[in-house]
Protein backbone atom coordinates (compact mmCIF):
# COMPACT_ATOMS: atom_id res chain seq x y z
CA UNK A 1 0.00 0.00 0.00
CA UNK A 2 1.35 3.38 -0.90
CA UNK A 3 1.49 6.04 1.75
CA UNK A 4 -1.61 8.19 2.18
CA UNK A 5 -1.16 11.83 1.28
CA UNK A 6 -3.05 14.91 2.41
CA UNK A 7 -4.67 16.76 -0.49
CA UNK A 8 -2.16 19.61 -0.20
CA UNK A 9 0.63 17.13 -0.97
CA UNK A 10 -0.90 15.74 -4.14
CA UNK A 11 0.98 16.49 -7.33
CA UNK A 12 -0.52 18.92 -9.80
CA UNK A 13 -1.91 17.59 -13.07
CA UNK A 14 -0.18 18.51 -16.31
CA UNK A 15 0.15 22.23 -16.72
CA UNK A 16 0.69 23.45 -20.29
CA UNK A 17 1.73 26.86 -21.57
CA UNK A 18 -1.10 28.61 -23.47
CA UNK A 19 -1.81 28.68 -27.22
CA UNK A 20 0.95 26.26 -28.23
CA UNK A 21 -1.19 24.83 -31.04
CA UNK A 22 0.05 27.79 -33.11
CA UNK A 23 3.08 25.56 -33.58
CA UNK A 24 0.93 22.99 -35.34
CA UNK A 25 0.26 24.04 -38.94
CA UNK A 26 -3.06 22.67 -40.15
CA UNK A 27 -2.66 24.27 -43.59
CA UNK A 28 -1.16 21.00 -44.81
CA UNK A 29 -4.66 19.45 -44.72
CA UNK A 30 -5.89 21.80 -47.44
CA UNK A 31 -7.01 20.55 -50.86
CA UNK A 32 -8.87 23.72 -51.81
CA UNK A 33 -7.51 27.22 -51.40
CA UNK A 34 -9.49 30.44 -50.85
CA UNK A 35 -8.20 33.31 -52.97
CA UNK A 36 -9.16 36.75 -51.67
CA UNK A 37 -9.68 39.66 -54.03
CA UNK A 38 -8.96 42.60 -51.71
CA UNK A 39 -10.23 45.16 -54.22
CA UNK A 40 -13.80 43.80 -53.94
CA UNK A 41 -13.80 43.44 -50.15
CA UNK A 42 -16.00 45.60 -47.89
CA UNK A 43 -14.37 44.36 -44.66
CA UNK A 44 -17.76 43.29 -43.34
CA UNK A 45 -16.03 40.57 -41.24
CA UNK A 46 -18.49 37.80 -42.07
CA UNK A 47 -15.66 35.56 -43.29
CA UNK A 48 -13.61 36.27 -40.17
CA UNK A 49 -16.41 35.54 -37.73
CA UNK A 50 -17.28 32.31 -39.56
CA UNK A 51 -13.77 30.92 -40.09
CA UNK A 52 -13.46 27.77 -37.92
CA UNK A 53 -9.68 28.00 -37.92
CA UNK A 54 -9.10 31.65 -37.05
CA UNK A 55 -7.14 31.77 -40.31
CA UNK A 56 -8.16 35.28 -41.37
CA UNK A 57 -6.15 37.80 -39.37
CA UNK A 58 -7.65 41.16 -38.43
CA UNK A 59 -6.07 44.41 -37.43
CA UNK A 60 -6.88 48.01 -36.67
CA UNK A 61 -5.83 50.28 -39.50
CA UNK A 62 -5.65 54.04 -38.93
CA UNK A 63 -4.69 54.91 -42.49
CA UNK A 64 -7.15 52.41 -43.97
CA UNK A 65 -6.91 49.82 -46.74
CA UNK A 66 -8.29 50.02 -50.28
CA UNK A 67 -11.36 47.84 -50.85
CA UNK A 68 -14.49 47.63 -52.97
CA UNK A 69 -14.98 50.53 -55.37
CA UNK A 70 -11.56 51.94 -54.51
CA UNK A 71 -12.90 53.06 -51.13
CA UNK A 72 -10.55 53.27 -48.14
CA UNK A 73 -11.74 51.11 -45.25
CA UNK A 74 -10.56 52.40 -41.90
CA UNK A 75 -10.78 50.80 -38.48
CA UNK A 76 -10.96 47.05 -38.09
CA UNK A 77 -10.03 45.31 -41.35
CA UNK A 78 -9.12 41.84 -42.48
CA UNK A 79 -5.75 40.85 -43.93
CA UNK A 80 -4.53 38.13 -46.29
CA UNK A 81 -5.65 34.60 -45.32
CA UNK A 82 -3.08 32.75 -43.23
CA UNK A 83 -2.37 29.62 -45.26
CA UNK A 84 -0.42 28.10 -42.37
CA UNK A 85 -3.74 27.30 -40.71
CA UNK A 86 -6.50 27.56 -43.35
CA UNK A 87 -7.92 24.07 -43.95
CA UNK A 88 -9.73 25.12 -47.11
CA UNK A 89 -13.28 24.44 -45.90
CA UNK A 90 -14.66 27.11 -48.24
CA UNK A 91 -17.10 28.65 -45.73
CA UNK A 92 -15.59 32.12 -46.26
CA UNK A 93 -16.02 31.92 -50.04
CA UNK A 94 -19.54 30.54 -49.74
CA UNK A 95 -20.70 33.24 -47.32
CA UNK A 96 -18.92 36.32 -48.64
CA UNK A 97 -21.65 38.79 -49.68
CA UNK A 98 -19.53 40.39 -52.40
CA UNK A 99 -18.24 37.03 -53.71
CA UNK A 100 -14.69 38.31 -53.50
CA UNK A 101 -13.24 34.98 -52.35
CA UNK A 102 -12.85 32.25 -54.95
CA UNK A 103 -11.82 28.65 -54.43
CA UNK A 104 -9.13 26.96 -56.47
CA UNK A 105 -7.52 23.56 -56.15
CA UNK A 106 -4.31 23.50 -54.18
CA UNK A 107 -2.36 21.99 -57.13
CA UNK A 108 -3.47 24.87 -59.35
CA UNK A 109 -2.17 27.34 -56.79
CA UNK A 110 1.11 25.48 -56.51
CA UNK A 111 1.53 25.20 -60.29
CA UNK A 112 0.84 28.90 -60.67
CA UNK A 113 3.46 29.63 -58.01
CA UNK A 114 6.04 27.42 -59.82
CA UNK A 115 5.56 29.34 -63.09
CA UNK A 116 6.35 32.65 -61.42
Amino acid sequence: MSERKAWQELELGVELPAATSLGYKTGGWRVLRPVWNASECTHCMICVSYCPDMAIPVTKSEEGVAGKGGRMFKGIVRLETNLDYCKGCGICAHECPTKCISIIREEEAEQAACKL
Partner: peptide, 22 residues
Protein backbone atom coordinates in the same frame (compact mmCIF):
# COMPACT_ATOMS: atom_id res chain seq x y z
CA UNK B 1 -15.42 44.70 -32.95
CA UNK B 2 -16.34 41.07 -32.32
CA UNK B 3 -13.88 39.93 -35.03
CA UNK B 4 -11.07 41.81 -33.30
CA UNK B 5 -11.81 39.89 -30.11
CA UNK B 6 -12.28 36.46 -31.70
CA UNK B 7 -9.38 36.65 -34.14
CA UNK B 8 -7.16 39.45 -32.86
CA UNK B 9 -3.97 39.10 -30.83
CA UNK B 10 -5.81 38.56 -27.52
CA UNK B 11 -8.07 35.78 -28.85
CA UNK B 12 -8.99 33.24 -26.18
CA UNK B 13 -8.78 30.29 -28.57
CA UNK B 14 -6.31 30.10 -31.45
CA UNK B 15 -5.46 28.31 -34.71
CA UNK B 16 -3.77 24.94 -34.93
CA UNK B 17 -6.61 22.95 -33.36
CA UNK B 18 -7.66 19.78 -35.14
CA UNK B 19 -11.38 20.15 -35.71
CA UNK B 20 -12.48 18.68 -39.04
CA UNK B 21 -12.38 21.21 -41.86
CA UNK B 22 -15.50 23.40 -41.67
Amino acid sequence: EIALKTDGVDARIVSGHRMCSG
